[in-house]
Nucleic acid binder design. Structure first.
Lengths: 159, 159
DNA sequence: CGAATTTTGTTAATTAGGTAAACAGTTGAA
DNA sequence: TTCAACTGTTTACCTAATTAACAAAATTCG
């Protein structure tokens, strides 16, 4: 890149403050989300758990005997999308599908000991990843951010 | 759903406050992002512009003669991913690829009058969508949210 | 009761968004 | 001049997610 071109590229970046996009919450939300997702993958990745698999395991550990439909509703995804996630967790030996005598349609999801152990390790790694990724923010700022994001999430049930 | 099952499902949702996930910034960021994305699509959607196409058009209008590589860097995506976006905008007649005599590799992106007009309509719709979607938030809260998201985005250049 | 509706888990097909690798042509630097 | 780097592009691939259909089971209602 010539010095001239370099200056031109930097000019675009420096002038970005003047872009409409920078004032949009949606745009900033997406850019921030991509950064956090990338760092999450670097942390749990290298064929570790994806965010979806991690979330599913977390909820199964917290709410043993949850059904797949309940889990899908809680995670805000389709039942069909959950099958592969639960397959993955069952293959890893982290949980089992258990028949429920009172309703033969459903299969309750129960974490194994290995699943609970894996989750304990994973949540530790995730918290460490958030600690370093958000180290420039004070605890107050983090709580403020959380409460504002939850305010957006209050829209979750509008269909 | 039986009343019993209903109670059980609600119990899971109500108890969600006790889930580790709810305390994670990453999880809340993703859930909030999904809501905003869904609403954005409902607004500009119905074969309108996707967020990516809208962003690209916005930057071409703001920085005419930007090149595809510069645009990709600014948007934080790969050059290869931009080709389809620019194709789409060119097909719609919203911008043109223009040869640059001083560097025969690059093609400068210049918006057409139709492109500028379409963008003006689009940004108006997007602002309206954000106004209603975030109507529960005060202006102060919106600015706080923006500044916290930008704090996360400060990590954007860490590779 | 019996018929119609709903729910559950599942598969298959499709889409959106995005990355990575390779390429030919062009430019810049040693 | 040769080597490295950059540009736009194509191709192949991947992940996340949705929709539609389905059979089995459960629930609702006439």
């Amino acid at each position: 890149m010539t010095p001239q071109k370099m200056l031109r590229a930097e000019a675009f970046e420096d002038a970005l403050g003047g872009s409409d996009l920078e004032e949009l919450i949606g745009y900033n939300l997406k850019r921030a989300y991509v950064i956090v997702r990338t760092d999450f993958r670097k942390t749990l990745g290298e064929d570790g758990m994806s965010a979806r698999v991690f979330s599913a395991l977390s909820l199964c550990v917290r709410f043993p005997n949850i059904t797949q439909s309940e889990l899908a509703r809680t995670m805000g995804i389709e039942r069909s999308g959950l099958v592969a996630i639960v397959d993955r967790l069952e293959d890893n030996g982290y949980l089992r599908r258990v028949q429920v005598p009172t309703d033969r349609r459903v299969q309750a999801l129960v974490p194994t000991d290995a699943g609970r152990t894996a989750y304990r390790e994973a949540i530790k790694a995730v918290r460490a990843h958030e600690d370093t990724l958000f180290s420039e923010m004070t605890d107050d700022e983090k709580q403020t951010l959380l409460s504002l994001l939850r305010k957006i999430r209050a829209r979750e049930d509008d269909e």
